[in-house]
């Protein structure tokens, strides 16, 4: 990989975050502070997750899929949901509507996740001469992760901030949130349990993230409608 390729992959990984911020009304409502705070909450949550993973998980010599360990990882993964709850409910937001609040939080969350998980591999890969498709696939995975993060933030906003949501939609909202929250465990199962290769996993992530985004958008739009 060359430096040129490094920049290409960096654009693919981090460009959509900037495009999202500038294309949507987020840039007009001064939500950058909220995104930064959400990123800080994400880093703290990641630290807590790291401590829990180190405390409760045993390191398996074989790379086989262990259902109990994976279940434990999924439980620890719900710390993300707690962090997101904290970011959506506890951070002081100055005159920001719910529409823009969850988008800012989701955007900051996804950006911090990409920086933490993908910038270092990109940095290391830039030093080598070897070309692989992995970095491009990592960038695509970052896109899927951005979509999933905003979807989860939207669903979280519906669950915790909106009071008068229709009764018939509450199970669908919780089910969708559960699916999005367990997506890391699902992809881990696909990769290690079913032996899927990275391109296939990334394709699945992109498809699933678009589907969940559509569902979240529909749910959010329905809940926006004033109830009679």
């Amino acid at each position: 990989m060359t430096v040129f390729h490094f920049f290409n992959c960096a654009i693919l990984t981090f460009g959509p975050h900037a495009v999202y911020y500038s294309a949507t009304p987020l840039s007009e409502y001064d939500t950058l502070g909220t995104s930064i705070k959400a990123a800080v909450v994400y880093l703290a949550t990641a630290l807590v997750k790291l401590i829990c993973l180190a405390t409760f998980l045993k390191v398996s010599e074989s790379d086989s899929f262990d259902p109990y360990q994976e279940f434990l990882k999924a439980l620890i993964g719900f710390i993300d949901v707690a962090g997101l709850y904290f970011a959506l409910t506890q951070l002081t937001h100055r005159n920001i509507s719910q529409n823009h609040k969850f988008q800012a939080v989701g955007l900051g969350w996804a950006f911090a996740d990409s920086v933490l998980h993908r910038l270092a591999p990109l940095w290391v890969g830039a030093r080598g001469l070897e070309f692989t498709w992995d970095y491009i696939l990592q960038g695509l995975e970052a896109n899927a992760n951005l979509v999933l993060s905003i979807s989860l933030a939207a669903l979280g906003s519906l669950m915790w901030l909106r009071k008068n949501k229709p009764k018939t939609l509450i199970p669908i909202i919780y089910l969708s949130a559960g699916i999005v929250a367990t997506m890391p465990s699902i992809t881990s199962y696909l990769r290690r349990g079913l032996g899927w290769h990275f391109p296939k996993v990334v394709g699945f992530e992109l498809f699933t993230s678009l589907v969940m985004a559509f569902i979240s958008w529909q749910l959010f739009s329905v809940c926006q409608r004033p109830s009679v």
């Binding site: 040129f4 390729h5 290409n8 693919l12 959509p16 001469l129 070897e130 070309f131």
Partner: peptide, 25 residues
């Protein structure tokens, strides 16, 4: 090392630019 060509990276840059424009719109 298996290396990629500059042409490939230029093409990739065009694809990424188009993708970001479409995303913006």
């Amino acid at each position: 090392y298996q290396v990629a060509s500059v042409t490939f990276d230029l093409l990739l840059l065009l694809v990424l630019g188009s993708y970001l424009i479409v995303l913006f719109s």
